[in-house]
């Protein structure tokens, strides 16, 4: 099977061509071309087997200066789960003070990934 993808690992955005057999997803049997660095190959493999993205959104915060707090998933999460995860994350209300990297929600939907604050809000 042939698949064309744009690599999203960096702003270069290489156009990748991936040739593989759906029944055999062993990394060494998947042929990737068009990439200009090794990140392209590993991105292509991940996209075929288990596409993942970083989740980013905002949640409410009790603070003197801000009404929204930007948050992110500390690591990537399965792409197909992102919309469901966001509805869950959106319900959380944070409290100032908070530091960048502070966990907001631990082990999101059993993925083992934490949602953390993207910024520092002192008050």
């Amino acid at each position: 099977m042939k698949k064309c993808l744009t690599c999203i690992e960096c702003p270069v955005g290489c156009l990748l061509e991936i040739n593989y057999d759906e029944k055999n997803l062993r990394s060494k049997d998947i042929v990737v071309s068009g990439n200009q660095c090794k990140k392209g190959k590993s991105f292509a493999l991940k996209e075929i087997k288990d596409p993942r993205r970083v989740l980013t959104t905002t949640i409410g915060i009790n603070s003197k200066t801000y009404s929204r707090l930007p948050v992110r998933s500390e690591k990537t999460v399965p792409k197909k789960e992102i919309l469901r995860m966001i509805t869950k994350v959106k319900k959380i209300q944070a409290e100032a003070p908070i530091n960048m990297g502070d966990p907001i929600y631990k082990n999101l939907m059993g993925t083992g990934v934490d949602i953390v604050s993207s910024t520092t809000i002192k008050e």
Binding site: V54, T56, P70, R72, M100, S118, T119, T120
Partner: peptide, 12 residues
């Protein structure tokens, strides 16, 4: 890979 707020916070 950082978010914009993180990138800004590091410099701040």
């Amino acid at each position: 890979q950082l978010t914009g707020p993180e990138y800004g916070q590091i410099f701040r």
